[in-house]
Design a protein around this nucleic acid. Structure first.
Lengths: 194, 194
DNA sequence: ACTTTGCTATAACGATTGTCATAGCCTACG
DNA sequence: CGTAGGCTATGACAATCGTTATAGCAAAGT
């Protein structure tokens, strides 16, 4: 099983993102992320000297960039195509995991930082959301949507997709995804042909 | 018969819901919920002999019913008024907690049950979402929306609100809530006057 | 050949977790 | 009065957490 493997560091980050998306932030331990990536525990603190906070922050950014890349590519075919790809991406994660995985960015967003300290991971999550919104809003504007409406709709899309993925997990069904997909599609169509 | 103040049992449930909405499911410990409710740890296992699973399930149902009550009442003034109340309810939680609290139902939905066991708490979360969707869909239909469109829109509203609350926490801003509010409002108006 | 550098291995620390057991209080009912 | 039962108090259990320390390895630079 030793293919041209990505570096151990990258395996740890990707594995952490996956585990956070399933069990949440606090239930994801450094020990298990290391084991999951077949890396020793000692290495984890070698690669991430600031500890869990740093690892989580990088996992959030990793997911954000991975998703943004797909979004950017598919949006070239227009905002509706971008939405479909965005939805398909999360649907695949939900279905392939048998309704056990979701979005790690959302998971990090809803767990309060331990002490009064501000969390770097939370700030990274905010950045990811803003990036996704920006990509969608730009595409909507390029296709004729009014600027303010484009921004509002982009926020709605990101929020709705995040919420829908969580609902699919609770219900163990993709029906919520189908329903919001239909609504969001007609919304985009109405916004670009004003 | 201390009926004047809520019973210790109810205090524990309400406190657990609050703590879950801030720190997430796994970071909420039985010991701290007991302390937060000024109840002894021993009592918690007296009231909830099935342990954490039972307490969490009741906390989810408690939040679900509390919210459904408010939703049912405000929907009597129409679906737009119901939406505004729904949004205002969550906005208050987010703002009053200085962006540290959110929805405990969402928090439970995104943390995988420990082992392969199915989680009663997750099933309760699914029920809560379905209840909220049903209330909204009924109101939309009563005001002239097409049945299928009403169901789809109700799902979108619940998902969007849940996602938006999480985004507000990450960004430490209520702007996402304002944006989705505007979009959802016009969506409802379009659906009831077909 | 010697040292530096990047990574691994192993063990330990204090703290906290869910859960359970046991003994005690305190009120209410017979 | 006495006794039963709902609730409290206390402490223990095995496990796991994040983190740190220390010693070791292999290759690369000099």
């Amino acid at each position: 099983m030793s293919e041209s493997s990505p570096s151990a560091r990258d395996r740890i980050v990707a594995g952490a993102a996956d585990m956070i998306s399933r069990r949440g932030l606090n239930a994801t331990s450094i020990r298990e992320t290391a084991k999951h990536a077949r890396a020793p525990l000692g290495s984890t603190y070698h690669y991430f000297p600031e500890g869990k906070q740093q690892l989580v922050t990088e996992a959030v950014r990793y997911t954000g960039e991975w998703t943004a890349r797909s979004l950017r590519k598919e949006l070239q075919a227009g905002p509706v195509a971008g939405l479909q790809a965005f939805l398909a991406l999360w649907r695949k994660i939900v279905v392939d995991s048998d309704f056990r995985a979701g979005c790690p960015v959302l998971a990090v967003s809803i767990e309060e930082p331990a002490a009064g300290r501000t969390s770097a991971a939370l700030a990274a999550a905010a950045d990811v959301f803003t990036t996704w919104e920006g990509l969608l809003a730009d595409s909507l504007r390029e296709h004729g949507a009014e600027p303010e409406r484009a921004a509002n709709l982009a926020t709605l899309i990101v929020a709705a997709v995040e919420g829908t993925v969580a609902m699919c997990r609770a219900k163990r069904s993709t029906e919520p995804l189908d329903r919001t997909a239909e609504q969001l599609r007609t919304l985009i169509l109405a916004a670009v042909e004003d």
